[in-house]
């Protein structure tokens, strides 16, 4: 089974819940557990929030793109912005590292994505933007077994 969707929306914080709910709805036919569902929602929230707050910090009219692909029981998600990009990716991914302490950012976005998903890759270039790629196996495959 293969199922694919892509969405693009205005980089405003109001759309973070929308993005999270949409991805949850998209994967729901894979019959995930509540925990898997909540893991994916958390990871998507963190990635979208980063795109809005860091990527498009002070830039008007930005767009966030989410690509989702389900292949068998593996979910692939990409969250893409065309914003400021990240200079030092390794450092950005360290727990507690944040460039926005004044906004009460915890520096735990990337560590959460890493913990809640099976795989995390970050591709970024200053002034070009950032691509966050995540993968997760969704355990309950009853839906796939039932397929004829």
């Amino acid at each position: 089974m293969r199922n694919e969707m892509t969405m693009e929306f205005d980089a405003i914080s109001e759309n973070e819940a929308f993005a999270r709910i949409s991805v949850a709805a998209f994967i729901s036919f894979l019959n995930p557990t509540l925990e898997e569902m909540s893991d994916v929602k958390t990871a998507v929230s963190e990635a979208v929030t980063n795109a809005v707050i860091h990527g498009y910090d002070g830039i008007e009219g930005g767009k966030v793109v989410i690509n989702c692909l389900i292949e068998k029981d593996v979910l692939h998600i990409e969250v893409i912005d065309k914003g400021k990009g990240i200079e030092n990716i390794e450092r950005a991914m360290e727990p507690l590292f944040t460039t926005k302490p004044e906004l009460n950012r915890s520096g735990m976005g990337f560590p959460f994505m890493e913990a809640f998903m099976d795989d995390l890759e970050v591709i970024s270039e200053p002034d070009k933007g950032t691509i966050v790629q995540m993968k997760k196996k969704i355990g309950c495959t009853s839906w796939i077994e039932d397929e004829e």
């Binding site: 036919f29 509540l34 569902m37 839906w143």
Partner: peptide, 9 residues
């Protein structure tokens, strides 16, 4: 019912 994971919750 089977296809929709949301039935679980």
């Amino acid at each position: 019912l089977r296809d929709d994971g949301m039935v679980k919750v």
